Simulated scan of single mutants.
Amino acid sequence: MSGPKPGLQLGLKVGRGAHAPAFLVMDVIAAANARAAGIAPGEPGILRMEVGQPGTGAPRGAAEAAARALRDGHPMGYTEAFGLRSLRERISRRYAEHYDTAVPAERIAVTVGASGAFPLAFLAAFDTGDRVAMAAPYYPPYANILTALGMVPQLLPCDASTRFQPTVAMLEALDPRPAGVIVASPCNPAGTMLTPEELGAIARWCHDHGVRLISDEIYHGLSYDMPEATAAAHSPSAIVVNSFSKYFSMTGWRIGWLVLPEDLVRPVERLAQNMFISAPHVAQIAAEAAMDCTEELEANRAAYRRSRDLLLRGLPEAGFDQIAAADGAFYIWADVGHLTNDSPGFCSRMLAEAGIAATPGVDFDPERGARFLRFSYCGPEADMAEAPGRLRRWLQG
């Protein structure tokens, strides 16, 4: 006797979210894992330059705080929807110390990573059909989450002339005006930053024109040549997204935060109560401790800087000589149009033949990404030092 047929054969409805595009870097990770599994002992390994995940783990103080809480029988139940009060106060103190900006703990929401923060922000700020502008190239889940929620991503094609960042002039040219704007500084995939003056100008334009600004600041702490600025210092209506995944090296702990304007505090809290209840309790304890692990975290940042500098010297010598300004984060955005117009195929061959995993640009810019790829340099320094030589030998055959 046959079982039930799949829903599509029964004519059942499939929701909008079921059609969200794939996040292709995850496919690259799977391919690199499979390739690594087939390498015999003694053969060169795979250099992992595809994923934006720090090679270091959580700071020692964070791991020890979590272990101590578990050992002492700390009850790991639900917290308030916006998180532990002590963690929110510690985040508030970071804004005072790092940005000289007052952000009350009452306007801070601890979230299930930045990935959990974006749906909360989008649902609270926008309605179905609203247009939300962002630079292209962009972090794919921005557009994919918006689309799944019934909103409309509005792409602003950017290039090296604006450091792959949007400008006020681009926003002024939009007709009709969007309901929102997303900026990221440092940005993924290009690693470029807005100057404090540029961020301030965009924030003021958005506030003055009734456009909700969402500022992705998850790579703050990882900047090398330019000062960091927060949109919270420039606009009372902006939403700020941040995370413990990158600078604090806690990707798998799934912990992030939002800085909210007054009018969205209660709406986001209601959404968070229903959608997530709270971020993981143990992760919140670890995150609070991580904020005082400055020496270890700054040592990680120094290692990223060294890797970045090695690649900025070595990649042009290997043939990758059209590179975006790598101001922050841990990415290099390379124009490979002189080598290929098929970045997915190019990355597949690079993995198979050179043993280097990188992410094709089409993940970040479907229209122009076939001539770009992204290298991540948050892996071991020795691997980053080896990469240019491997690439040079591969390309020169």
Rank of each mutant, 00 (worst) to 15 (best):
K5R: 15
L10W: 07
G11M: 05
K13L: 10
G15N: 11
R16C: 00
P21M: 03
A22C: 01
D27T: 12
D27H: 14
V28E: 13
A32P: 09
A32M: 13
A37M: 12
P41W: 09
I46S: 03
R48M: 10
G52C: 08
Q53M: 13
G55E: 03
P59V: 02
R60Q: 13
A65H: 09
A67F: 07
A67R: 15
R71C: 00
G73Q: 10
G73K: 11
P75M: 02
G77L: 10
G77I: 08
Y78G: 00
E80P: 10
L87D: 05
S92R: 06
R93H: 12
R94G: 06
Y95V: 02
H98R: 15
H98G: 00
Y99H: 15
T101W: 02
T101Q: 13
A105W: 06
V110E: 04
T111E: 08
V112F: 05
F126S: 04
T128I: 11
T128Q: 13
D130E: 08
M134Q: 14
A136V: 11
Y139D: 01
A143P: 04
N144T: 13
A148Y: 09
P157V: 04
T162F: 02
T162H: 08
T162M: 03
Q165H: 13
P166I: 12
P178A: 07
G180S: 09
I182S: 03
V183F: 05
C187M: 11
P189H: 07
P189W: 03
T195F: 06
L199P: 10
A201K: 12
I202K: 07
I202C: 07
R204C: 01
G210C: 09
G210A: 08
I218L: 02
H220S: 07
H220L: 09
G221P: 07
Y224G: 03
D225A: 14
M226S: 11
P227T: 08
P227C: 04
H234S: 12
H234Y: 15
I239E: 01
I239F: 13
V241L: 14
N242L: 00
S243D: 08
S245C: 12
F248K: 01
F248V: 02
S249I: 00
W253S: 11
G256F: 07
V259I: 14
L260Y: 06
P261G: 10
P261H: 11
D263S: 14
V265E: 07
L271S: 06
A272K: 06
A272P: 05
A279K: 09
V282E: 13
Q284Y: 06
A289V: 06
T294L: 09
E295K: 01
E296D: 11
N300S: 04
Y304P: 00
Y304I: 05
R305T: 01
R305H: 11
S307D: 11
D309T: 10
L312I: 12
G314I: 11
G314E: 09
E317Y: 00
A318H: 07
A318M: 08
A324R: 04
A325T: 15
F330G: 02
I332Q: 11
D335A: 07
V336Y: 02
L339R: 15
D342S: 07
P344L: 04
C347P: 05
M350Y: 06
A352L: 10
A358Q: 03
V362G: 00
E367C: 00
E367K: 14
R371E: 12
R374M: 13
Y377V: 05
C378M: 12
P380M: 03
E381S: 14
D383E: 15
A387M: 15
